[in-house]
Design a protein around this nucleic acid. Structure first.
Length: 958
RNA sequence: GCGGGAGUCGCCCAGCCCGGUCAAAGGCGUAGGGCUUAGGACCCUAUCUCUUAGGAGUUCGUGGGUUCAAAUCCCACCUCCCGCACCA
């Protein structure tokens, strides 16, 4: 049977829609509020995006069937800058982006024409993504949909950010950004030629020396080496500038003067001085020592200030330059000896010397000096310790001492930050070379605050995090998180209420918006207008602050409306589960926690976070350049929504990267096809007298329900799906084998049992593959819709331990017969079984079983306990039996052992006699004779009977 | 460098938290068989090595250690992946 996926999926989607099945209002049932990070609509969603949403949808559908009132909403994140850059590029008609839109995304020409306006891009892909979500069968309450630039949402964000400010969570400070001096704008990845992210190195510092009336600034990555300084370097071929910087006069290269003019400093050039004029003079350092300035060609005017301090012990370049001068008998240089300040295991007193000599560096222009510098830098940073030359920092590890020295110099006003572009030159799309600009009035969320971090940890400690092994990552993130800029100067979004120059940054306006879902329904239907959304209204509804009257008077809403909105929020909040990809752990998910604890009462803190890995495409990463991005809607068209849902879920555990490949999709398709076929031929009817295999399969089903439910609850969906699709199949095929061997024709309840079990199976499949499950449910002639049916409930009382034991015995026995037949290579002509009937063996067996269920597996201990008990003390006469029994039980699962202990008595002979014959005839072509060990008429020509053990009959094959 | 994670039987991927149920699930691939005019799909069987009695041997990145017992715990090492921010 080939399934027309589109047709079936459409059929059921329409029914869900007609019934408004996913529109959720508060009611008397317990609720679950499941949310997933909303998408940024600058491209169609692909299979990778589909994963997070699908997982959340399965979660939502599962809880719905478990009887919860589930709210699963969706919004669209318009905030941000990427569409701005796109619009610019489209306006310029850039080939690359146009080709992408036309050929990869298949956007119609007349739509592309509108894309010069950023919002139109977002609008277009918003619609596109939403259609995809509907086609995937996501059970979303669309009445609550919004974008982050609608007035209602903006009111909400204004309230959020004001509240944070009131509570002291927002501070102002300076911050370096990549900057285009022509456009007068910050640049991000989307604004640069080649899409390079401008990386800013903030570990670079400027240290001030004095040379007469001038400040003589140098820059360094290693402030601690100030103790090892022997001289300074200037380039004799550079003409330096005299510039006033605020109220000092600095000597720097022309390039440097330009750079610092972007550091919020007042910079004016007042003259110049050739490098050669500086050389030979002396500057003073932080403690008043005179340091000579020497000439060096390697000093580049574009690096730092164009002036350099020299630490020949630990900087290979400095060492080499000094050697070059000594070789020329330079008078000052000849008196200079390196000063060693860092001790590193495995290195000599002057490591720079060692490394220069080891690499046979030829001179200060030797390119390999970079490499030598890097190597030594890393080594000393990781393993080095400051020595006694470093005063009170003596004995510190370099990596910690450096920060302390930096802070100390900074306090004295000798050191300041000198951020540089790490990956420069970076060019803006306009062609200009980008610089680092320090913004002095930037707004920050003060995530570095200890108290705030503490609250976040409290929240995380009580939260369920799935899978739990990502918890440590959250702890780490909270630890290293510090101030984060929460406003920017361009892009779509909401303006800061107190400073209209700034727009709330996009990762800051998406942290507590789940609360807005409870309100957006009323905004969307006009009950509440954006004008009504006053501070007092939000305070009252979300924080229970103030009172209803105040909220009503300021918002000009009726008390009824306000209490309805408040009830809605109170009913659905807190968020019960937040789903997101693992790339958002470091930012969004952590900010989500931090902002919740900053704003809401503890009872409203989020309950759970679910993190999933990404999706690979046929084993390799999805990327534009590789052209292996499959838009979700195209995939739905080609393969059907349900097969895609299952393929994404079944290919990996939650946190693992899932691999999407066509083979697994078609494998799943055919699995679903055969399941549908099976459902079509099963009809509900009376279940008659139960046979052994009936009791077994029904018991087994209970076990499956138990396992699968537990797996879904922990979001181990791959495992759950495996159970539904395959483990059930294994049970049923054994059942079918048994039934066929017995020639039962189905009228005596077999079909009814199959119907019952498959109904359970289809119900559990429903959250995963909702469309086809509805179809199966209908074919099974069950009433109503499966998505509205109850999740199958595990009932321990329906588990018949002895029938499970019995069937295990049967299977094991058949396996053993098969094994023997295989090893001997002979076709059995006669099969004889001997079951244990020895009272003593049985007593020992049960005793051993009891010991082992308690967790003990040691042969010695078992034996000791047996001997200690007078009833079994004779076991010592037959240690081989005990040994084998222990080994038998070893290879049984814990549950089987427990069940076996529960079953008081079980007649192996009777059971095997009645059940084994038919199936053995089918498997091996001959019937089976069963004797008890103690039978008088026993046929035992080879004396095998005495090897019989409980649940392990002896076997004779002739 | 800092932080997180991974290395499993041809491939992909479970198992590791909580040691014995592990020669280690499942999928793919491969081989044989069934079905079919044929192919595809589907179903069955096999798939580390040896073995004429249900057995034995050697495996889970490498090397040590703990233990009666290690894929699982501890230590060291090797290799690989991801993040390091103002960007969604």
């Amino acid at each position: 049977m080939t399934i027309n996926w589109a047709e079936i999926e459409n059929k059921w989607r329409t029914k869900w829609q007609e019934g408004s099945d996913f529109e959720t209002d508060p009611n008397e049932k317990p609720k679950k509020f499941i949310t997933v990070a909303y998408p940024y609509p600058n491209s169609p969603q692909h299979i990778g995006h589909g994963r997070t949403y699908t997982l959340a949808d399965v979660h939502a559908r599962f809880y719905r069937m478990k009887g919860y009132n589930v709210l699963f909403p969706m919004g669209f994140h318009y905030t941000g800058t990427p569409v701005l850059g796109m619009a610019k590029r489209i306006a310029a008609g850039e080939k690359e982006i146009m080709d992408g839109l036309r050929n990869t995304y298949h956007v119609p020409e007349d739509a592309i024409k509108t894309f010069v306006e950023p919002v139109k891009i977002a609008d277009y892909f918003h619609k596109e993504i939403k259609s995809g979500m509907i086609e995937m069968g996501y059970s979303i309450d669309w009445r609550r949909e919004f974008t982050t630039i609608v007035p209602g949402y903006q009111k909400f964000i204004e309230w959020q950010i004001s509240t944070l400010k009131e509570r002291g969570r927002i501070i102002q400070g300076s911050h370096p950004v990549g900057w285009c001096p022509v456009d007068q704008n910050p640049v991000s990845q989307h604004d640069t030629i080649g899409d390079v992210e401008p990386k800013i190195d903030e570990k670079n510092f400027l240290i001030k020396f004095r040379l007469g009336e001038f400040v003589f600034p140098i820059t360094t990555l290693r402030p601690e080496t100030i103790f090892g300084i022997t001289n300074l370097w200037a380039n004799p071929n550079t003409v330096y500038k005299k510039v006033t910087v605020d109220n000092e006069i600095w000597l720097v290269s022309a390039e440097c003067a330009k750079k610092i003019s972007f550091f919020e400093k007042e910079v004016t050039e007042i003259g110049e001085i050739p490098g050669s004029d500086i050389i030979g003079r002396h500057a003073t350092n932080h403690d008043g020592q005179e340091i000579p300035v020497l000439p060096a060609d390697f000093v580049e005017p574009d690096m730092g200030t164009g002036l350099v301090m020299s630490v020949p012990s630990h900087a290979p370049k400095d060492y080499q330059a000094l050697m070059d001068l000594k070789a020329k008998n330079h008078e000052l240089a000849s008196r200079i000896e390196p000063i060693s300040i860092i001790v590193t295991k495995g290195h000599g007193l002057i490591p720079a010397k060692d490394i220069v000599e080891k690499m046979a560096i030829s001179g200060q222009t030797d390119g390999r000096l970079e490499e030598a510098t890097k190597e030594l830098y890393l080594k000393e940073f990781a393993d080095g310790r400051l020595n006694e030359k470093c005063g009170r920092f003596s004995g510190e590890k370099v990596q910690f001492g450096r920060d302390k020295i930096r802070a100390w110099l900074q306090e004295d006003g000798i050191l300041e930050k000198f951020p540089v572009l790490e990956n420069g030159p970076v060019r803006c799309r306009c062609g200009a070379k980008c610089v680092v600009k320090v913004l002095n009035d930037q707004w920050f969320l003060n995530y570095g605050d200890k108290g705030w971090k503490g609250l976040a940890r409290d929240c995380l400690d009580e939260m369920s995090i799935l899978p739990n092994n990502i918890r440590t990552e959250f702890d780490e993130v909270i630890d290293w998180l510090h101030e984060r800029a929460c406003a920017r100067q361009q892009g779509l979004g909401t303006r800061l209420p107190w400073d209209g120059d700034w727009i709330v940054e996009s990762l800051s306006d998406s942290v507590i918006y789940m609360a807005y879902y409870t309100l957006s329904r009323f905004v969307n239907d006009g009950t509440v207008t954006p004008d009504n959304l006053t501070k007092e209204f939000f305070d009252y509804v979300f924080l229970d602050k103030g009172d209803a009257e105040l909220a009503a008077s300021t918002s000009r809403l009726s008390g009824d409306v306000i209490s309805t909105v408040k009830r809605e929020f109170t009913y659905f909040y807190p968020v019960d589960s937040r789903h997101s990809g693992r790339d958002l752990v470091q930012n969004h998910l952590s900010f989500f926690v931090l902002n919740h604890v900053a704003i809401f009462a503890k009872s409203l803190w989020p309950q759970e976070i679910v993190v999933n890995g990404s999706v690979m495409m046929e084993g390799s990463k999805m990327s534009k350049s590789m052209g292996n991005i499959i838009p979700l809607r195209a995939a739905i068209k080609d393969h059907g929504a349900d097969p895609i849902r299952l393929a994404i879920i079944s290919s990996a555990e939650l946190l693992q990267d899932a691999d999407f490949n066509i083979e697994s999709v078609s494998g799943i398709q055919s699995k679903l096809e055969s399941l549908l076929e099976e459902c079509s031929r099963l009809k509900n009817s009376e279940i008659g007298r139960l046979h052994a295999e009936d009791m077994w399969v029904l018991s087994k089903t209970q076990g499956r329900i138990h396992e699968i439910t537990e797996a879904v609850e922990k979001m181990r969906l791959r495992e759950a799906l495996h159970g539904i699709l395959y483990a059930f199949g294994t049970d049923l095929s054994w059942y079918t084998k048994r039934v066929t061997a017995k020639s039962r024709d189905g009228s005596d309840g077999v079909l009814a049992i199959l119907h019952k079990i498959n109904s359970v199976r289809v119900a559990m499949l429903s959250p995963f593959a909702p469309h086809i499950a509805e179809e199966m449910w209908e074919r099974l002639e069950n009433t109503g819709m499966v998505s509205k049916s109850a999740w199958p409930k595990y009932d321990a009382s329906k588990v018949d331990a002895s029938s499970i034991q019995a069937e295990e015995l049967l299977k094991n026995t058949i396996d053993d017969i098969g094994n023997i037949a295989k090893v001997t290579g002979a076709t059995p002509k006669k099969i004889v079984l001997y079951v244990s009937s020895d009272e003593f063996k049985s007593t020992v067996y049960r005793k051993v079983l009891g010991i082992m269920v308690g967790g003990q597996n040691n042969m010695g201990v078992v034996m000791k306990e047996l001997i200690a008990d007078p009833k079994t003390t004779d076991a010592k006469k037959n240690p081989e039996f005990v040994q084998k029994t222990v080994r038998d039980l070893h290879s049984e699962s814990e549950t089987i052992k427990e069940m076996r202990l529960k079953v008081e008595s079980f007649d192996e002979k009777e059971f095997l006699k009645s059940e084994l014959s038919d199936i053995a005839k089918k498997e091996f072509g001959v019937g089976v004779k069963v004797y008890s060990e103690s039978d008088t008429d026993i046929y035992d020509p080879k004396g095998k009977a005495r090897y019989a053990r409980p649940f392990k009959p002896a076997i004779l094959i002739e």
